[in-house]
Amino acid sequence: MRKFAKGNEAVTIGAIYAGCDAYFGYPITPASEIAHTAAEYFPPLGKEFLQAECETAAINMMYGAASAGKLSMTASSGPGISLMQEGMSYLAGAQLPAVVVDVMRTGPGLGNIGPEQGDYNMAVKGGGHGNYRSIVLAPNSVQEMCDLTVRCFELALRYRNPALLLADAVLGQMMESLTIPQGVMEREDPSDWCVRGDPDTRENLICSIYLEPDLQERHNWMLQDKYESMQKEAMSESYRCEDAELLLTAYGSCARICRSAVDALRDEGLRAGLFRPISLYPFPREELNRAAAGKEVLVVELSNGQYRDDVRLHLDACDKRLELANRMGGNMISVDEVLGRARAMLEGSS
């Protein structure tokens, strides 16, 4: 069954099919429709919806709900996500599952409500304190807004870790056909770790404090091992890469623009391909290296090279030219601009 849905609504639909128990959030453009639809859809399904007094409250309400073994979510945009960073660190430290949706807008500061991808580092590198990682998935369509929300819940629960859906204003506001998920996600019994006010969980403890340095270090090592073990969950898509001379790489709505650019270049007989990471943490490192082998790389993003830095970091060899095409401030990069940069690189290398 299909529906013609807005990206933000698709997130709420995904959350419903993931079995999300509760939504705690504070409204902000361009993420508010997630709260609007959750407010409408959750109560008749017996799920909890609460408009929190601030983002800090929302993330801590999620900490409480997750402590009880329940699945909860929130959605916001840059300024609100910034406020949640302490809570993200606590969720990671106490090993609690929760899903945070960031429909990125323009920054820094108040910025504006146009699309940007400037929250990349905050999301992927962990904007809170301490040695932790969040799972980060980056949709590029309304369908993925839904499907990757489900996946965020799945991974958050599997690894007992916060997961972030890193979307942007384009994906939140656009409408496309959505194939509705079939059936609600099954989940494992959290009795061995949660605290929900019953005899089975009375002995359990949710906390992230270890006063002894050795114990705190052991906790940290255990977390690092867990993050390492997530690598097998890496997701990516390679489009027309096989015989390409130039590799475009982008995530989210930028990858849509690059797809159009690749098709246009191919129509001109120019051999370009696109590598799109779907998971930003864990990063699809091997897949990137396979796609980029022997090719020049054009990174396209709506931020100041934050994603480009990670591409460089993950490339085993960076002996070919690597360039950045980017816009900021709420301006979309146009297919024309990407084409211009790609043609220049292809001509320069021949």
Binding site: D21, A22, F24, E48, L50, A52, T56, A57, N60, M61, M62, Y63, G64, A65, A66, S67, A68, K70, S72, E86, G87, Y90, A94, V195, R196, G197, D198, T201, R202, N204, L205, I206, C207, S208, I209
Partner: peptide, 24 residues
Amino acid sequence: GNVAGPHGRAAAVASGLVRVIPDK
């Protein structure tokens, strides 16, 4: 059952808890 909350946020954590385990 014990949950350790962040600085200042015990009330928000409790609000989250009572919303998902209202009978506890």
